[in-house]
Amino acid sequence: MDGYITKSIIGFIVILIIGYGMIKGGKVYEWFIEGAKDGLKVCLNIFPYLLAMIVAVEIFKQATLLDILNNFIAPIAGLIGLPKEIIPLILIKPLSGSGAVGIFTNIVQAYGPDSAIGLIASVIMGTTETIFYTVTVYFGAVKVKKVRHTVWAAIMADLVAIITAVTVVRLFLLS
């Protein structure tokens, strides 16, 4: 019974919206068509930005820049107690959510979900953002070109989330 309700809820919401629009005397079908047209325009507007982001992520992964950055950042990460194994997750997460999920899955499989590395990686996955993807999509959709302050604020928020993740896991979950 639970699965049926969960699977049917979207249909119920659609019927509720259509019914409400019809009761209010609105032109539901015409509104739907206009919304679909606007949605396609947004897709066309953000496509170049998304394509550029996808190409950049692939170049980053294929050129083994991840390994080079990992070795460079490891001593700095050690200062806050961040395990070297989590650095690839931190480097990919701002660029690609699906890439981060792949790296996270590898971390959990290799070290276990209850290990310090697994717990820190889990908290980081839940508290950080795909900064460049999000900025690309949302700012590209509204054609904002000057994103400098937004990107720096988002990077600082991610750094705070990473430091907090390491601290919280070490203080509360590993004691």
Rank of each mutant, 00 (worst) to 15 (best):
Y138P: 04
D114V: 14
C43M: 08
V166K: 02
L171E: 13
I17K: 09
P75S: 08
A154G: 01
I87P: 04
I73Q: 04
M1C: 10
F72C: 05
A56Q: 09
N45Q: 12
A52P: 00
P113I: 15
G11T: 04
D114Q: 13
I162L: 06
T6H: 02
V169T: 09
G102Y: 10
G102V: 01
I163H: 05
R170Y: 08
K27A: 15
L171H: 08
L51V: 11
I107G: 08
L159M: 15
L82S: 06
Y29N: 05
Y111P: 02
N71H: 13
V160P: 00
I86F: 00
H149P: 00
G78D: 09
D114E: 15
G19Y: 11
T105C: 09
I103Q: 12
M1E: 12
I15P: 03
I54L: 05
G118V: 06
V168N: 06
K143S: 12
K84S: 08
V14W: 06
S96A: 12
I155G: 01
I90Q: 00
G26P: 00
F47T: 14
G112F: 10
I18M: 10
M156A: 15
A153H: 10
I86W: 01
M125D: 04
I117L: 03
Y4A: 09
I92E: 00
F104N: 07
V28R: 02
P48T: 06
I86S: 00
K27C: 09
P88Y: 04
P83E: 07
I10S: 09
T64F: 08
T64W: 03
P88V: 04
M22A: 13
I103R: 11
F32I: 14
M22S: 10
I10M: 07
F172I: 03
R170C: 05
